[in-house]
């Protein structure tokens, strides 16, 4: 039996916020694939649960009036991965999601849970950061929005106040139109493994010029990160092998990997530079570019 001390089921976002306010110790549970593992291992922070598993208003994927792509954070990974809208507009997210856990886990785990957990290896985070995703957060003080990139504060720390809940993940139309991407996860196994390094690149190519590049890494720093300096160096330049070499060289200064039992810092840096080149190249090819 899980060591749950109090359990309240929320039927709506409003109710979840109210329940969170009533019990400052309470934490949300959605798909349960992280929370229940932590409870099983005896971690203390999840004794008081507010269950948002069945809140229908958090489970959706649609295009809004401005054709922005909006994902409900309570949507399970399998549904996101298989969604025709996602596959059409931001296939890089599907690519990333199908590397997460196994099918059973993806049938339960939610995309919002993956982000709110705030681990540096969250596989859904890097494609969404590369796509400039924006989060909508609802709490006792009302509604606010923030870029996903600013949401991650540190390992397992995100910018959610105790009474707040993530209610939408948005990729605006101008952030997916004309963009193509690629995701690669380096891990020890092909399935059921946590990323040693995850990498997402999203780019726009016109007339052999790299109009825009967004490069993001997971497990390359305390939080999932964008390589802004590298992006600025190469934006607007002509496609060439030399350009890829510039990226490889520059990316080292954007990241800050650490040594853990999974991999040493040097090894991670080696993977980061290799992936920077490989993933950007594939994204460029996907965007119709050629590299001479």
């Amino acid at each position: 039996m899980f060591n749950i001390k109090t359990y309240k089921e929320a039927g709506s976002v409003k109710e979840a916020i109210k329940l969170l306010q009533e019990n400052p110790q309470a934490r949300l549970i959605a798909g349960g694939t992280d929370v229940l593992v932590k409870l099983h291992k005896g971690k203390g922070q999840f004794h008081h649960l507010i269950d948002i598993h069945n809140i229908a208003e958090l489970d959706f994927i649609n295009l809004n009036d401005g054709e922005d792509l909006v994902i409900g954070p309570g949507t399970c990974f399998s549904r996101v991965e298989e969604s025709p809208l996602i596959r059409k507009h931001i296939p890089v997210l599907s690519e990333a999601i199908c590397t997460i856990g196994g099918p059973q886990v993806r049938n339960m785990a939610t995309i919002g849970g993956n982000l709110c957990n705030g681990v540096p290896s969250a596989d859904s985070a890097t494609p969404l950061i590369a796509l400039n995703a924006v989060l909508t957060i609802e709490g006792a003080d009302g509604l606010r929005q923030m870029p996903l990139e600013d949401f991650f504060l540190g390992p397992s720390r995100v910018a959610l106040k105790q009474h707040e809940i993530l209610t939408a993940i948005t990729v605006t139309r101008d952030n997916y139109t004309g963009f193509h991407g690629h995701f690669y996860k380096y891990a020890m196994r092909n399935a059921m493994d946590i990323a040693t390094i995850g990498c997402s690149a999203v780019c726009k190519v016109e007339d052999s010029v790299l109009k825009d590049l967004r490069l993001a890494f997971g497990t390359a720093a305390p939080v999932p990160i964008r390589c802004k300096d590298t992006e600025n160096k190469v934006r607007g330049r002509r496609l060439s092998q030399n350009l890829l070499d510039v990226i490889t060289e520059s990316v080292v200064d954007d990241v800050n990997p650490r040594t853990s039992w999974r991999a040493a810092k040097d090894f991670r840096l080696q993977i980061i530079t290799t992936l920077a080149q490989r993933v950007v190249k594939k994204a460029i090819l996907n965007a119709g570019g050629t590299i001479h």
Partner: peptide, 22 residues
Amino acid sequence: AGECGACTVLIDNVPIDACLYL
């Protein structure tokens, strides 16, 4: 812990790990 699948059952015909399902 959701790693081995030995507890797999179908819920509405969808496979899930029964160990991580309230």
